[in-house]
């Protein structure tokens, strides 16, 4: 589904390479995790995939179902089925959560040549999805992420994912700032979306999120490259010994 081949990225403004040849292939229906120390390039990869400004791809490719992601605008990537759950979801005062979600859903449907969803249908859809994430009607009415707690913001990200039904979900440190209960709620939301046609790329510092969202493959990223990959046991090893041993091995 997602294929990243020899991806090199630098900051647009300065000559600072961040990704130095990332290779990654995520098959349909699988969950991959990327772990790595601070500054290894994990979050940059999520931004480059979703099309944030400020980065320049100097070499390599990234495709989603064969389509060249890097040639698309962010909204086109979303319509192609890519979703990024933000580490820091953005507050949009004065724009209701429901308005935002419905605008997003209908924009994607329009891009795919599908009819827009009516207000009534949409309300039903959101209510149903919100319930399992324990998002109440009040939270849906409030402006996007304004006054939301850390946990509420992350749940709201997962709600967007549930409503937009992307094929490829990238979660950028979704566990940061969450207590155990909130993490479980978020993980349950993600697990409910696991499906043979949907893949996940879970970026995290810590193994604990992976207790709840069981990955098929774990990659360790350091200094802009994936240095090693393995099964879930790799995450446990990091939890036990830190990154130092793994980094020493490849050095």
């Amino acid at each position: 589904m997602l294929n990243i081949n020899n991806l090199h990225v630098k900051l647009e403004e300065e000559d600072k390479p961040i990704l130095k040849g990332v290779n990654l292939s995520v098959e349909a229906g699988s969950v991959h995790a990327i772990m790595g120390p601070n500054g290894s390039g994990k979050s940059t990869m999520s931004y480059v995939l979703s099309g944030r400004d400020g980065y320049a791809v100097t070499e390599g490719t990234a495709t989603l179902d064969g389509a060249d992601l890097l040639a698309m605008e962010p909204e086109e990537r979303a319509a192609a089925g890519l979703f990024l759950a933000f580490q820091y979801p953005v507050e949009i005062p004065g724009v209701g959560n429901m308005t935002f979600l419905r605008t997003a859903l209908n924009a994607q449907r329009k891009a795919r040549g599908k009819p827009e969803v009516s207000a009534g249908e949409f309300l039903k859809l959101v209510r149903e999805k919100a319930k399992s994430l324990q998002i109440d009607a009040e939270m849906l009415k409030r402006p996007v992420n304004v006054g939301f707690s850390g946990g509420e913001k992350k749940r709201n990200e997962i709600l967007q994912m549930a409503v937009l039904e992307p094929r490829m979900c990238v979660l950028d440190e979704t566990d940061s700032g969450l207590d155990v209960d909130a993490m479980r709620l978020v993980a349950d939301g993600v697990n409910a979306l696991r499906d043979a046609g949907r893949s996940f790329l879970v970026i995290t510092h810590y193994q604990r999120l992976l207790d709840h969202i069981r990955p098929d493959v774990v990659h360790i990223m350091a200094d802009g490259r994936i240095i090693t990959s393995g099964g879930p046991e790799l995450a446990l090893e990091v939890e036990k010994n830190g990154y130092a041993d793994l980094l020493a091995e490849v050095a």
Partner: peptide, 10 residues
């Protein structure tokens, strides 16, 4: 970027 990443055109 947040809004565009959800599929909303610029």
């Amino acid at each position: 970027f947040y809004l565009r990443s959800r599929g909303i055109p610029r």
